[in-house]
Write a protein that binds this DNA or RNA. Structure first.
Lengths: 238, 238
DNA sequence: CAAGAATGCGAGTGACCGCTCGCGTTTGTC
DNA sequence: GACAAACGCGAGCGGTCACTCGCATTCTTG
């Protein structure tokens, strides 16, 4: 008796069928196979396995990083065989991609309102709280995200995703800054945005490295750094 | 005719004989071999090869990171055979270790005076200039250093070296801060020191990612961040 | 010069890793 | 129940990589 009987799910999300060629190195291996036309109907069991495998992958990626994590280790962590893993993911990269996609989706869903328009007149401290808190919460809840986005050992598609997220964040921060510091040249705004993001990342690393009240203290420090850095540049009455 | 004839050097620095076991994974492979007692006298040719190999390794580590760099690629980059590489280094880790050691040595030699005692009354800006400029210069001159110290894919011994450097720097910064902010509890000083180092690292990443005048501008930004962060904490008259 | 040590080579070895394949089991549909 | 499709397994294939070994060459030393 392997799985409990549950109402079948025929609607699926297609976790495979992504990331076609690994790097172009092993040439004639997995190639076309008459197009990926079939949608590959999943059962409820399969969806559960996928979630299970992604959770295991998160665990392993977190402790070993992407490249050092072996697919066999992920399968073992999930309590399944390597063959089963490849039933649901075409290759190792696809696991990271899917994991990243789901995390991004959850982030957008939960904290989509962060870095929102922000009406003029908002005090700087409050603006920074609104921008920093959600992302800190998300990253402390999902340390894999940092692990996947940070290493120099990320797969090609993942690097793209990272760059895209980075650019998006910089653009958003630029918009925020533009509304805070009206009289500033665009290149300076861009630079300031990059610096803010850098400060946030560095702070995130410190925050993740500590626990409990110490962690809270570092969150405060990051916000202080940002406030003091931006205060001379903005024109709100604090 | 492979090498030019040069006055022989019999004084050596012993680039090998370090980092005994790779990880404990391949068990009975390279074990004791009757102790490493012999000092292994080097010729001038050997010293040149070592320098050449380290330079090649720096190049490859820089572009691929530590784990992704293959020893064969390093040997190829240096224009020698894999066997020759292993004539001078017992394993891949030893290459990184030796490279790191030499960089650390050069850093201490060239910029040992940075983060020096610093007599009371020094203005904050000047103190930060004196602390930041040398390290920025060193890191832009030797990008390998950042590559080796940064990745999550660093070898065991390298991580130790990194931690040691990190701790040393934090301690030095604590000392600097203690002289700047007399009335502050030790844990807060430690936290502030960690934040300063984090800001520096994040700034370094931004600086290394840009060239020319843009790079200069980011150096200025990093200093501004530090100045504005520390200004409210110190008690000098600026 | 002769002996021995240091240097140099590159095919080869063993281990690991991403991934596959054949075959057996479970589930959904009629 | 019958059939097909999805699921599950794990030995094993091909490839890469760190590292070795036997042998040739060059240098040092007496």
């Amino acid at each position: 008796m392997p799985e409990k009987t549950e109402p079948t799910t025929t609607e699926n999300k297609r976790a495979d069928e992504r990331a076609e060629e690994p790097k172009g190195k092993p040439e004639g291996k997995r190639a076309d196979k008459s197009e990926d036309s079939r949608p590959r109907r999943r059962q409820a069991r399969g969806e559960r396995r996928i979630a299970q495998l992604l959770q295991a992958a998160a665990q392993v990626f977190c402790t070993s990083g992407y490249t050092a994590a072996s697919t066999n280790a992920i399968a073992r962590e999930a309590g399944v065989s390597p063959g089963t893993l490849y039933q649901f993911f075409p290759n190792k990269e696809a696991i990271a991609i899917e994991l990243g996609d789901r995390l991004m989706h959850e982030m957008r869903e939960t904290y989509g309102e962060a870095l929102a328009p922000l009406d003029a007149g908002t005090p700087l401290e409050q603006a920074i709280d609104a921008a920093v808190d959600p992302f800190m919460a998300f990253n402390t809840d999902h340390p894999v995200f940092f692990a996947l986005m940070h290493g120099p050992d990320i797969p090609g598609r993942m690097a793209e995703a990272h760059d895209q997220l980075h650019t998006t964040l910089v653009t958003r921060i630029e918009a925020l800054l533009a509304s805070l510091m009206p009289g500033a040249a665009p290149p300076e705004v861009t630079r300031t945005a990059h610096v803010c993001l850098g400060i946030y990342k560095a702070g995130l690393e410190l925050v993740l490295a500590h626990e409990g009240p110490e962690r809270e203290a570092y969150v405060r420090e990051v916000k202080d750094v940002l406030v003091r850095y931006l205060r001379p540049l903005v024109s709100d009455g604090a």
